[in-house]
């Protein structure tokens, strides 16, 4: 509450002149719109054996199920991408543990807003880095933070 108050207090002053606090150049704006749609990355490049196996499994899941049953995952990265990234960063056992934990959290519909920062696309940002259980791997982001 107090934080919000200060934010509001300083906002108008900052807005007033911030434009010119860095030198800027001519800039052409594109008339075109940006796509707010989720782009799937199906590529297998740069994967080891286990990574490829996971990726093929996930790609099949995407094509046959996930693309067809609606937008159900509240997180970014999605649960399937989370599994894939976890598999890439750690070992199969750890990845599966991380995935089941994520899956459980996915089922909890309460208080997401106060537990996760919101990603710019409206999803809750929940990267694998937070769950590696390694020294200094947690780069904490406040839930009030907007992730670009």
């Amino acid at each position: 509450m107090v934080k919000l108050f200060f934010l509001l207090l300083f906002f108008p002053v900052v807005l007033l002149a911030q434009t010119d606090w860095q030198k800027w150049e001519k800039k052409d704006v594109s008339y075109q719109r940006t796509a707010p749609f989720l782009e799937r990355d199906y590529s297998l490049s740069g994967e080891d054996v286990f990574g490829s196996a996971t990726k093929i499994f996930i790609n099949t899941y995407w094509v046959l199920f996930s693309n067809l049953d609606g937008d159900n995952c509240p997180f970014n990265p999605t649960c399937s991408s989370f599994l894939h990234q976890a598999a890439k960063r750690t070992n199969p056992v750890k990845a599966v543990l991380m995935f089941t934990d994520r899956f459980t959290r996915d089922m909890n519909p309460f208080n997401r807003g106060s537990n996760y920062p919101v990603h710019i696309a409206g999803k809750f940002y929940d990267p694998v880095e937070l769950y590696l259980l390694e020294e200094n791997s947690v780069h904490y982001l406040s839930p009030s933070h907007m992730v670009q």
């Binding site: 594109s30 008339y31 075109q32 749609f37 067809l68 049953d69 609606g70």
Partner: peptide, 30 residues
């Protein structure tokens, strides 16, 4: 779940295709 997903997809594809068409038009205009 799949019935609802099917409707969501129909909407998404229509919006995606429209965006392509609109962006082509806007690109031409620019």
């Amino acid at each position: 779940r799949f019935y609802r997903g099917n409707i969501q997809n129909a909407e998404k594809f229509a919006l995606e295709e429209n965006l392509k068409i609109i962006n082509n038009g806007l690109k031409y205009l620019q």
